[in-house]
Lab assay of single mutants.
Amino acid sequence: KEYCRTLFAYEGTNEDELTFKEGEIIHLISKETGEAGWWRGELNGKEGVFPDNFAVQINEL
């Protein structure tokens, strides 16, 4: 499994977007979303897309 840590808080504006606080760990599902600048991940049981410049991939939890 791949993970990323959020660098900033983000408020999702669409139903398919994740909302998160700074410093949260998102399970990274895919970097290929069909839309440049967006990754797909899962946080707190919800799957959605989020801007990749708001997070950095990490090697271990």
Results as ranks from 00 to 15, higher is better:
K1Y: 03
K1F: 07
K1H: 05
K1M: 11
K1V: 07
E2G: 12
E2H: 15
Y3S: 09
Y3P: 02
Y3K: 02
Y3V: 05
C4G: 02
C4H: 00
C4N: 00
R5G: 01
R5P: 00
R5E: 10
R5W: 03
R5H: 06
R5K: 15
T6C: 04
T6E: 03
L7Y: 02
L7P: 00
F8T: 13
A9D: 14
A9C: 11
Y10Q: 06
Y10L: 02
Y10R: 13
E11R: 09
E11K: 12
G12E: 06
G12D: 01
G12K: 09
G12I: 00
G12P: 07
G12H: 01
T13L: 12
T13Y: 09
T13D: 10
T13H: 10
T13W: 05
N14V: 06
N14P: 02
N14L: 07
N14D: 12
N14A: 13
E15H: 14
E15S: 11
E15G: 11
E15T: 08
E15P: 13
E15F: 06
D16S: 14
D16K: 14
D16R: 12
D16Q: 12
D16V: 09
E17P: 00
L18V: 05
L18A: 05
L18E: 04
L18N: 02
L18T: 05
T19Q: 05
T19C: 08
T19S: 15
T19I: 03
T19D: 05
F20W: 00
F20A: 01
F20Y: 02
F20N: 04
F20P: 00
F20I: 05
K21N: 14
K21V: 11
K21R: 12
K21Q: 11
K21L: 10
E22K: 15
E22C: 07
G23L: 00
G23K: 03
G23Q: 02
G23C: 06
G23V: 00
E24P: 03
E24G: 01
E24H: 00
E24I: 04
E24M: 09
E24C: 06
E24F: 00
I25F: 08
I25R: 07
I25Q: 09
I25V: 12
I26L: 09
I26W: 04
I26Y: 00
I26S: 02
I26M: 04
I26F: 01
H27S: 12
H27G: 12
H27F: 09
L28A: 01
L28R: 02
I29M: 10
I29K: 09
I29P: 05
S30F: 00
S30C: 07
S30A: 11
S30R: 06
S30V: 02
K31R: 14
K31T: 13
K31W: 01
K31Y: 03
K31C: 04
E32P: 04
E32R: 09
E32H: 10
E32N: 15
T33I: 12
T33R: 06
T33E: 06
G34T: 12
G34E: 10
G34W: 02
E35R: 15
E35D: 14
E35W: 07
E35F: 10
E35T: 15
A36W: 09
A36C: 11
G37N: 02
G37Q: 06
G37A: 00
G37P: 01
G37Y: 00
G37S: 02
W38V: 09
W38N: 01
W38G: 04
W39C: 05
W39T: 03
W39S: 10
W39Q: 03
W39V: 05
R40I: 04
R40V: 05
R40G: 01
R40W: 07
G41Q: 03
G41H: 02
G41P: 04
G41K: 01
G41M: 00
E42C: 10
L43W: 04
L43I: 14
L43A: 08
N44G: 13
N44I: 01
N44M: 10
G45W: 01
G45E: 06
G45I: 06
G45P: 01
G45K: 06
G45D: 06
K46I: 08
K46H: 15
K46L: 09
E47D: 07
E47C: 12
E47Q: 14
G48F: 00
G48Y: 00
G48V: 01
G48W: 00
V49I: 14
V49Y: 13
V49N: 12
F50T: 02
F50V: 03
F50Q: 02
F50N: 01
P51D: 05
P51N: 04
D52S: 15
D52K: 13
F54R: 14
F54C: 15
F54V: 14
A55G: 08
A55I: 08
A55E: 02
A55F: 05
A55Q: 05
V56G: 10
V56F: 06
V56C: 08
Q57I: 14
Q57E: 14
Q57H: 13
Q57P: 15
Q57W: 05
Q57R: 10
I58P: 06
I58N: 07
N59G: 13
N59P: 13
N59Q: 13
N59R: 09
N59C: 03
N59V: 07
E60Y: 10
E60R: 10
E60M: 06
E60W: 09
E60P: 14
E60T: 11
L61R: 13
L61I: 08
L61G: 13
